[in-house]
Design a protein around this nucleic acid. Sequence first.
DNA 1: TCGAATATGTAACATCTGTTACATGTAACT
DNA 2: AGTTACATGTAACAGATGTTACATATTCGA
Lengths: 185, 185
Amino acid sequence: MGRQPEPHKRAELLEKAVDYVLEHGLQGLSLRPLAQALGTNARMLIYHFGSKEKLVTEVLEAAQARQRALLGELGGEATDPYAALEAFWRWFSSPRLAPFARLLYEVEVGAMQGQLEYQGFARRAIHGWIGFVLQSLPGSTPAQASLIVGTLAGLLLDGLITGEWERVNGAFGGFLEVLRAGSRG
Amino acid sequence: MGRQPEPHKRAELLEKAVDYVLEHGLQGLSLRPLAQALGTNARMLIYHFGSKEKLVTEVLEAAQARQRALLGELGGEATDPYAALEAFWRWFSSPRLAPFARLLYEVEVGAMQGQLEYQGFARRAIHGWIGFVLQSLPGSTPAQASLIVGTLAGLLLDGLITGEWERVNGAFGGFLEVLRAGSRG
DNA sequence: TCGAATATGTAACATCTGTTACATGTAACT
DNA sequence: AGTTACATGTAACAGATGTTACATATTCGA
């Protein structure tokens, strides 16, 4: 008895919060501006999510789920592993994916600085991408997959900061070249 | 006339502030805890440096200078470029250099999120490292240097977060291998 | 010894932070 | 109607933030 719960309200707030965090980042995130952008107030955010920390945790997981859904755009029609890698790079370095990458880097830096709530998330993300490369490129080793993920992460960071995509894309092209030549040697 | 300025006081505070920021990061940096760790109070930090923002700027530049001084440890006794690259990796991934790397990632993430005071610093750092690789490896192109810097940055980030240095070092070893094989092919 | 300039300490200011107490509204069931 | 449980708004709380006003020391030169 009593009034029925309305879980869709909470879900809508969460999705809008993901939008906001993808745009503004986690760094200076504050409940009151966030709530105002969501058409509510800080009181309701605490009511629905318990605390700011729990809200951030849910936002991170929801953002990750959203990115995984976008991963479906990467059809498996690649002919060879190098074409698959190039498609993956083009997908990940596209402007639409940039907010997700920025958010992940933010979490990773937080993890590096010892924030425990980010450490598990960051490690899982790294292992997840390495696992994705491992299964996308049959026959690859963990060392090779770690190299690929690390290189792409480093180049993407460069591009997101400098915006010098010709240079960064050239570097990625060089990476593909040495990978090809290395497999022949 | 009047009392003489004592610039060494300011310089000592700055060096201690660099120590503190290298250990605690920029993220939650606050004047009062910083000042207490330095044996002074927030009032004096503002007095000497004008504002928190200016203090941070000076700390970043001083930290960069300190890292450049450590770069002198890298003697040029490497026989071939690959040995030089390996020495550079071992130097940069050593625990003593980790605080500098963490600080740079923190600045880079701030730059990505649009904090103007970090953008110039991060871009200069990236271009600086690429220039360093370019002049350390004669005959290398900007694309190759960008690839090397990006890869090392990505792998270092992985190692600093996961601590799985066997895997990360293995990935770097694989990078050296494909570079060698690529140059032969 | 006086004036002048730098150094320092205390305390306040206004503002922002996450969180909560309290009141009230709203929908459902008896 | 009355009870129960969820939803929401206002306002406050305690604490932290960067910065500043004010007072006072300290050290120099005349």
